[in-house]
């Protein structure tokens, strides 16, 4: 009953909290060409733990923004975000107003989309069923 597969099927959080589960989900997303959404999700968690007073934190915020949100063409993350969420983050980064929770809303939107789409597909995918 407490097999890894049963745990991973409980919730996206239980899947992503487990190294093997997260690795398997990554392989699935690589096939679907949307691994960016997973990297962004982890980047948001990593950012939340950074010290807002550290100069490195601003560089990381800019890097996340540039890589996943600003990208004009075909960014899978950018497509899943609401316009107000994107403009909020643009203002934070350009105005250098950093807060550990600044990516929370964007992360929640990407997470909801993963739960509705990629996670459900993953639970019925060959990669999961053959594990």
């Amino acid at each position: 009953p407490d097999s890894p597969l049963a745990r991973w099927a409980k919730s996206l959080h239980s899947l992503l909290g487990d190294k093997e589960g997260a690795d398997l989900f990554r392989r699935f997303l690589e096939r679907q060409r949307c691994v960016d959404t997973l990297d962004f999700w982890f980047a948001c968690n990593g950012f939340r733990q950074m010290d807002p007073g550290d100069a490195k934190t601003l560089r990381v915020a800019k890097a996340i923004y540039k890589r996943y949100i600003e990208s004009g063409g075909g960014g899978t993350v950018a497509k899943q975000l609401k316009p107000p969420t994107k403009s909020f983050l643009r203002d934070c980064v350009k105005g250098q107003r950093l807060d550990p929770s600044m990516f929370d809303q964007a992360q929640a939107e990407v997470q909801a989309s993963m739960e509705d789409n990629a996670y459900r597909l993953f639970l019925s995918s060959d990669i999961y069923l053959e594990y």
């Binding site: 190294k19 997260a22 980047a43 948001c44 950074m50 890097a63 996340i64």
Partner: peptide, 20 residues
């Protein structure tokens, strides 16, 4: 000085679950 990609990768890795 670390490149932007390195910083981003470091941030992602810091949040990934570790092997038990």
């Amino acid at each position: 000085i670390d490149s932007e990609d390195d910083l981003l990768q470091e941030c992602i890795s810091s949040a990934m679950p570790k092997k038990k």
